[in-house]
Every structure is written in structure tokens, then in C-alpha cells.
Nucleic acid binder design. Structure first.
Lengths: 130, 130
DNA sequence: ATTTACGCTTACGTTAACATCAGTTATTTT
DNA sequence: AAAATAACTGATGTTAACGTAAGCGTAAAT
């Protein structure tokens, strides 16, 4: 059984963020560590949710969006209506990610173009100097 | 010849942003429209730079990063040292974009998993209700 | 000739996502 | 026992990226 638990500074070190940030994520409802007195004890689940949060934050999502998405990962709905809106929200996130995917490819193409030009300019310089 | 020019509100409408935002981008050195009296006149080049800015902003880049990257697109360097740092910066941007690319794929995989589960739960509900 | 529309500058307001600090408690380490 | 270490709760500060509003100029439409 994974019965591992973590302190706030362990997680902070692992993900290279400050404890302040981790507490903020709790305020935002993303994490919900247990307490041992006043101290926070983070479970493996908390750690996973933190990792997922960092991942989508790198993609420019807000904390609110991050929370929504991550909550959907583990939210077993029972009503048909709820399942429907879940599917819709998932599709919305997917659409956005696909758009970003395209944006990345376009940007990489541009970078590749400039990179090549720079390489050529560099070899020309070395030729002349030769 | 593309001698087209645009007013601020034309660009604002096209890219669904406010004039305020466009003026801000000028302050940040991303755009540099000509003036006709006090009025700003945007060239095709400005428009392209605005489009590129919007693109990388969707990827979560800051305006400073956007400016740096977009400036590199059109900056013909002449010194070897400058070409080297240009190549380095390009590679840094590329690395970051590739990391984002992976993050997107991971997130899409998760979403796909949840999406399937939800679909299945939905068909089960409909089966029962029959 | 005067509304109306568009644009300008200047300045203050706002929100998100933290950082920083002060003061306190609790727990190790020496 | 004393001191260092880690964590806690407020509270205030900071930065980026805008939004909003006031007051003014200019040009086009009625």
C-alpha cells in the first residue's frame, strides 16, 4: 500500500515551489491535506494533484481552471445531466489544448526557420574568416 | 505591394482585444506604429507581430518573452558572438515549447481516460432506464 | 453648426498569483 | 535547558496585464 505522506517542505523542495504556494493551492481548494495538530500532512493523492497542477500551470491555466480539470479526473458523477456537463467541460478543455498544440507547432516552425538562418549566417562568417 | 494599414480599432476588432491592450503592447516595445498626427497607423508588419503575440500569449508566455521571441524572428545579427547567443535563446524557447508539448499530450491522455469513463457511465444509465 | 464617433493621454482601479514579514508554537538537536 | 529548525497564522507588499474613466482633440455625418 502506498501509505506515504509528506510534509509541506518536502513537497516544496520536490516541485521547486515555496510552502506559501502550496498553502495557497489549499485555499483554492486544489489540495486538502490532513492535519496532525496544526501541521499539514500531505498524502500521495495530494502529491499527485500538486503535480497535475504544476503541469497545467505550465500551460498557462489559472488555478481555478486547474482545479476544475483536476476535480473532473476523480469525480464519479451519477446523474445523466451531470455526466453531460462533465463531457462538455472535458471537450472544452480538450479543444483548448488542441489549439495550444497547434500554436506550439506554428511557433516551433518559425523558430526552426530562424535557427537555420542563424546557422547559415554563422557558417558564412566562419568561411570568410576561414 | 502590401501597403495596407490599419487603425487601432480595426486590429482590436480583428483580434478581439481592446485598444488599451494594443497600446500596452506598444509600451512594451512589441508594436511600433507610425503616427498620423496623434493617431496610430499600423502596418502589415505590426499586424503580424500582433498575431504572433496573441499566439504565444495563448501559450502562457509573458509579454517580455513574447517580445524577445518575436524580435528574434527579424533580427539579422552580424557578429559571431551575437549569433551564438541568438542560437542559445532560440534553443531555450524550443526546449520550453517541447516541454509544453509533452504536458499537453499527458493532459490530453488523462482527459481521454475520464471522457471514456463518463461515456460508459452514461450508456449504463441509459441501459438501466432502457 | 453641432452632434457623433474615434482616438489620444493620464491616471487610478483590479485581479491573480504569489512573496515577504512578523509574531507564535512546536519539535528536534545540542 | 537552550537553541536551532520547521511550521503555523495573519497581514501587507508586489508584479503583470490589463480595465475603466475623465477630459480633450479632430474629423465625419447629419
Amino acid at each position: 500500500m502506498k501509505n506515504t505522506s509528506y510534509t509541506i517542505s518536502e513537497l516544496a523542495t520536490e516541485y521547486e515551489i515555496t510552502p506559501r504556494t502550496i498553502r495557497l493551492y489549499e485555499e483554492q481548494g486544489i489540495l486538502s491535506p490532513q492535519r496532525e495538530g496544526r501541521r499539514r500532512i500531505y498524502s500521495e493523492r495530494d502529491r499527485v494533484r500538486l503535480r497535475l497542477t504544476m503541469r497545467v500551470r505550465r500551460l498557462g491555466m489559472s488555478l481555478a481552471e486547474a482545479r476544475e480539470l483536476i476535480d473532473m479526473y476523480s469525480n464519479p458523477q451519477d446523474e445523466e445531466h451531470q455526466l453531460h456537463t462533465l463531457l462538455e467541460r472535458l471537450q472544452a478543455h480538450r479543444d483548448r489544448l488542441l489549439a495550444q498544440h497547434r500554436d506550439i507547432e506554428l511557433t516551433l516552425t518559425e523558430i526552426g526557420r530562424v535557427h537555420e538562418q542563424a546557422q547559415q549566417a554563422l557558417s558564412r562568417l566562419r568561411q570568410e574568416r576561414g
